[in-house]
Structure formats: C-alpha cells, structure tokens
C-alpha cells in the first residue's frame, strides 16, 4: 500500500505567540517549530498500518518554507519512507483552499491508496484542509477517526469516528482520506538510529510549475479568504469570590451571572 500523510510544521505549542505590527502574521523570531501533534497521529497510524500489512510505503507531504524540510525529516526519524516538499514563494500566505489546491495537485502526482491527515493543525486551527483535499481529489473522507482497520481485500476499511458522546462505525472505500483525532494512538519517539537515517531518505521538491498550477491558483492570489486582522485574545480577568451567607451569596451570584456575565 501507499499511504500519504499530510503534515504541517507549526510553532511549538509551548511558544508564546506575538503578533507582528501589521496584525496579519505572527512574529517568526525566536520560534521553535514542531510537527503539528495531530499530524504525528497521522504518521503514527500510517506506520502502524505498515507494520501490520508489510509492503507499504509511508510518504509525507508538506507545504512550507525551506525550514519545513526539518519537519519531513522528523517524520523520517519516526519511520516514514519518503517526502515531498511543496516549496515556492508563490505559496506564501495561502488560505486553506489554496493550501488544499496545492496539496491535492501534488498528491495527484503520487501513487496513493490512502491519505491520512491530522484533524487540524494547531496553529491555524481551521480543520478544513483535510476535507478540502478529499473534495478536490474526489475521494471519500472520514474525519476525526478514533480507530481503523483495513479489510483483507485492501479495498475497504472499517473506521470509527468520534461523535459527541459516542462513536460512529463506518465502512469506507479506498482510496479515501482520513483525519485523526486525539486518542487514535500514541505517537512513537523517533529512535536515534531513525534520526541518523533521515539524510538518506529522499525529499522531492515541488514548485508551482512542477505541479502544473498557475501562480494565480496558489498562495495569496489563489486564496478565497484574506486575513484582515490578527490579535491576541483579551487577557483573562481574575475570578471573583462572592462573599456572605450561602442564601444571600447564591442570589448575588445568580444576579451577576445574568446581568454582568450575561450567561443565564
């Protein structure tokens, strides 16, 4: 089988994010980058399928600047076999639609039976790209999977997806695209030997012309949305303790919740 995992390099979740003065981007200085945690679930699941079925290639695909190669190599260290890096200045400032357009164009050039993505990237938090890629490739999609099992025919799979308070069990055809929810698996540590071997694994670069796309279809020009302003959430106000006898205090609390907080 050929499994493609779409991954994204994102700021480390421990990073304190600062917004640049133009209020369109986050400040890049001093940020350390990681593979988005949900994408690690995708790579882990692909590796587990490989270990179970054998004779499987795990390919990782990412769009991003030059530094994003490091994210591909982090996936290699876990055990992924090869990588594609969609790297071109024309891809800058892509929204989810332009990103999905670019990813789908790249994946069309790769032989695949299954695509696995994280359910969302922890920077933009949009949860759209996986679904959009599936639509653009015209293949079935299952979002937020918690469990999967590929049937013996390798043409169908049984997939559990998370619902509010329960799980839904689906049978889905391959090729299809799945996005991963937390709890699907526990991503492995890369081994030191895996890290040593990362330089030997191939990374193919794709530019906008390699993908047969025009610059108008990608990046800011190909985007359907435009970031008009980016700002940090207002600082959280400290809590308040309502003093007094319970009967009086409850009345006061109810009043505050209704009149000030406006939640009841």
């Amino acid at each position: 089988m050929n499994i493609v995992c779409c991954i994204k390099q994102v700021p480390d979740t421990a990073t304190v994010i600062k917004i640049d003065p133009e209020e369109k981007h986050i400040q890049r200085e001093g940020i350390t980058y990681i593979v988005s945690p949900y994408d690690e679930f995708a790579v882990e699941e692909a590796l587990q399928i490989k270990e179970k079925l054998g004779d499987t290639t795990v390919t990782v695909v990412t769009m991003g600047p030059e530094r994003a190669k490091e994210a591909l190599r982090q996936c290699f260290a876990m055990g992924a076999d090869e990588g594609y890096h969609l790297v071109d200045d024309a891809f800058d400032d892509s929204d989810t639609y332009a990103t999905a357009t670019t990813l789908a164009a790249a994946i069309k050039k790769i032989d695949f039976d299954l695509i696995i993505c994280g359910k969302h990237a922890v920077d933009g938090d949009t949860s759209q790209v996986g679904a959009q890629v599936a639509e653009l490739l015209d293949i079935p999609q299952v979002s937020m999977i918690m469990k999967e099992e590929i049937n013996d025919d390798k043409k169908t799979a049984v997939v559990n997806r998370q619902l509010e308070g329960g799980e839904e069990v689906l049978e889905v055809q391959l090729p299809s695209l799945w996005t991963c929810q937390k709890g699907l698996n526990e991503p492995r540590y890369p081994t030191l030997k895996g890290i040593m071997g990362t330089k030997k694994k191939p990374i193919t670069d794709f530019t906008v012309s390699d993908l047969g796309l025009s610059p108008e279809e990608v990046g800011l020009l190909g985007s359907k949305t435009d970031v008009s302003k980016m700002y940090p959430p207002p600082p959280r106000l400290p809590g308040r303790i309502v003093e007094g006898e319970p009967e009086e205090a409850v009345k006061e609390l109810a009043k505050l919740l209704r009149e000030e907080a406006k939640v009841i």
Binding site: E70, R73, Q74, A77, Y189, P190, L192, I195, M196, T198, K199
Partner: peptide, 14 residues
C-alpha cells in the same frame, strides 16, 4: 549539525 539537533530534541523530550 541537524541530526545532532534532532537527537538533542529527542533527549529533551524524553
């Protein structure tokens, strides 16, 4: 070197 940096990251995470 990048491979040593990744080993440093792994060790830090461990």
């Amino acid at each position: 070197p990048e491979d040593i940096k990744h080993m440093q990251d792994l060790t830090r995470r461990f």
